[in-house]
């Protein structure tokens, strides 16, 4: 290889990485803006969405905008409940799909992918049509949002846990059984700990999907206001900067949890 070729290759190699990092930077610019705006003082000009003065007050008084913290609490409640149910049902289903044979398994495998491949507006309006047809049109609220969220989180949970479960080394369970562990003990001492990172990842994903959802929620919420609906409502009038505080906190907590899950998994793999 001549020097020129080598130089060409070096540039080629690093060009790809540089371009990739540039795309990554592009993905982070809006997050940086959210963080920056959480320190913005816009008390003098509510209608202009631009950085004016630096202030700590948004962080000191996050609940100042009317109804925002109620909306955040409601979103957390719905998110936790939907995550709990979706993770439980989804994990059971993932075990069924990987470990057991039953009639209709391939159909189930296909149906699970459909919610991820349907536009939210169509799923949302279908659910609304169902609720109205069932006579619940006047009772839209917490329960209908919860039902909808479990529905769209389920597929993501099943896919995530399934991936972890099918990558599992069956020999470990075999070894436990050979050493006279009962099926029950084997499950709780061997299988479950090995699958757990997958379940944790699925739960995290569920919560962020639920907390973040607007399109389906908005159609099925009635008078109930979740955090994204609050943001939508104020977006027309002038956005309180505290919205960015919530965005920043959410971002930091999720990043922390995901990185922790990743490091714990890696440590286990190393041992």
């Amino acid at each position: 290889m001549t020097g020129l070729q080598r130089a060409g290759r070096w540039i080629g190699d690093h060009l790809v990485m540089a371009a990739g990092l540039l795309v990554l930077v592009y993905m982070f610019v809006p997050i940086a803006v959210v963080m920056l705006m959480s320190f913005n003082d816009n008390s003098k000009s509510r209608n202009v969405y631009a950085f004016r003065d630096f202030t700590w007050s948004n962080w000191a008084h996050p609940c100042r905008p009317d109804g925002m913290c109620d909306a955040v609490v409601r979103s957390i409640e719905i998110g936790l409940l939907a995550t709990l149910v979706a993770t439980l049902l989804g994990t059971l289903a993932a075990f069924a799909l990987v470990r057991h044979d039953f009639v209709g398994r391939s159909v189930a495998n296909t149906v699970i992918f459909l919610p991820m491949a349907s536009p939210e507006i169509v799923m949302g309006s279908s659910l609304l049509a169902l609720f109205v047809a069932g006579g619940f049109g006047g009772q839209l609220g917490f329960v209908t949002i919860f039902i909808a969220h479990v529905m769209f989180c389920l597929s993501f949970v099943i896919v995530t846990v399934k991936a972890r479960l099918s990558g599992l080394d069956g020999n470990l369970e075999q070894a436990a059984m050979d050493l006279y562990a009962s099926e029950w003990t084997t499950f709780w001492r061997v299988t479950f700990p090995l699958v757990f990172p997958g379940i944790a990842a699925a739960a995290l994903l569920s919560f962020s999907l639920s907390f973040d959802d607007f399109i389906i929620t908005n159609l099925n919420a009635g008078q109930t206001v979740t955090f994204p609906m609050f943001v939508w409502g104020v977006a027309q009038r002038g956005i309180p900067m505290q919205v960015n505080v919530v965005g920043t906190v959410m971002f930091l907590i999720s990043l922390f949890l995901v990185l922790t899950n990743m490091l714990v998994t890696r440590k286990k793999a190393a041992v």
Binding site: M27, F28, V231, N244, G247, F251
Partner: peptide, 27 residues
Amino acid sequence: NFLLVLVIAPFFTSFLVRTLSWKLILA
């Protein structure tokens, strides 16, 4: 793996809040 976490990291802030920040960038 770390880079992959960065790819999904934007999901961690609210969709609407992220989109609103584009309003500022493109103002």
